[in-house]
């Protein structure tokens, strides 16, 4: 392998890891909702889109940095998620119908409304937040003159990745160390047992949906400096988070993080070595392969955690 080839490979791996960290954050929101409520939230990507537009509006009107708007978008989405769960999803969970998938179809309806409202308000143009540090990067040769390969590290990507890590760590702290986090995990593991132990299951569901929405809203803010937005962007992120959730093992948070990294790496490898247009196909190849070869996901390989069956 020549130096150039090594350089390209290393660069691809680095961008894969950076992308994977962000993917993991998106998938975490879906995973905890899936674990506690046992439903797939198909409006997940649309909630992220809402987060992205909040960051966009705050940036273009009030010149608030997208990284700061995490602290505005996340609470807003938390409330939005609570509202959706309380007034739309909860009533449907009680209604009797032939198809048990009604809640999933309901989230599709919510997603459609959100995406279409965004189209009406913001038009379907592609938009960006031109942050001043958008193209800044660190180069390895600047710090180590005789390095055999030159690798660059884009500043916004690195900052987003670091913040995603911090948020993930915060979530881990919340789930393992606080009372409410423990209650949420108990609800996910065994609903009836949690109920018998005096956990307010209904409240945990509402909080979890809010929390999942807040996580994906935060991810939206982290994505905005390095990506562009348009109202229909949500669908692709819903699929990404679903693929990661399958890859990681349904409802497993550790699995979601590992799954996110694998997907990020694989996607950036396909983009470099097969072609940009095929990157989404690479994502689904992983998905199909995961379904056939490791149906339980990474979590089943780890055997560290198990939620039901």
């Amino acid at each position: 392998m020549t130096a150039i080839q090594t350089e390209v490979l290393l660069q691809t791996l680095i961008s894969g890891v950076l992308l994977g960290g962000l993917y993991a954050l998106i998938a975490l929101g879906m995973t905890i909702i899936m674990g506690v409520m046992k439903i797939i939230n198909l409006a997940h990507g649309e909630l992220m889109m809402v987060g992205m537009y909040i960051a966009f509006v705050l940036f273009s009107w009030l010149h608030i940095d997208p990284y700061l708007s995490v602290f505005i978008a996340a609470p807003f989405l938390f409330l939005l998620g609570i509202g959706l769960q309380k007034y739309l999803i909860n009533p449907v969970m009680k209604v009797d119908s032939i198809l048990p998938e009604n809640q999933v179809i309901l989230t599709v309806g919510i997603g459609m409304v959100l995406a279409n409202l965004a189209t009406i308000i913001f038009q379907s143009d592609y938009r960006q937040t031109p942050v001043s540090y958008g193209t800044k990067a660190w180069y390895l040769r600047d710090y180590w003159k005789d390095s055999p390969v030159d690798i660059s590290l884009s500043m916004p990507w690195t900052v987003s990745f670091t913040m995603a890590l911090l948020i993930t760590a915060g979530l881990w702290f919340f789930l393992t160390k606080t009372d409410m986090g423990k209650s949420i995990r108990a609800t996910a593991q065994d609903l009836d047992a949690a109920l018998l132990m005096g956990v307010n299951v209904e409240r945990m569901r509402v909080v979890t949906f809010g929390l999942g929405s807040a996580l994906v809203g935060a991810a939206g803010c982290l994505f905005i400096p390095i990506y562009y937005i348009y109202p229909d962007i949500g669908g692709q992120f819903t699929l990404i988070s679903f693929v990661i959730t399958i890859l990681g093992g349904l409802g497993s948070t550790v699995g979601a993080i590992i799954g996110g990294l694998i997907l990020g790496l694989f996607e950036s490898l396909t983009a470099t070595y097969v072609g940009m247009g095929w990157a989404p196909v690479g994502r689904f190849v992983i998905f199909v392969a995961a379904l056939i070869f490791i149906p339980g996901g990474v979590a089943s390989l780890l055997r560290s955690r198990k939620f039901g069956k």
Binding site: L88, P91, V92, V95, D96, S97, I98, N102, I105, L106, V108, G109, I110, G111, M112, V113, A115, N116, L117, T119, I120
Partner: peptide, 20 residues
Amino acid sequence: TAHHTLFGVLLIVIIIFLPN
């Protein structure tokens, strides 16, 4: 331009009130 919103609302209403 709002036809997806109306479809979505229709879907939500149908699922909540006429699930079958």
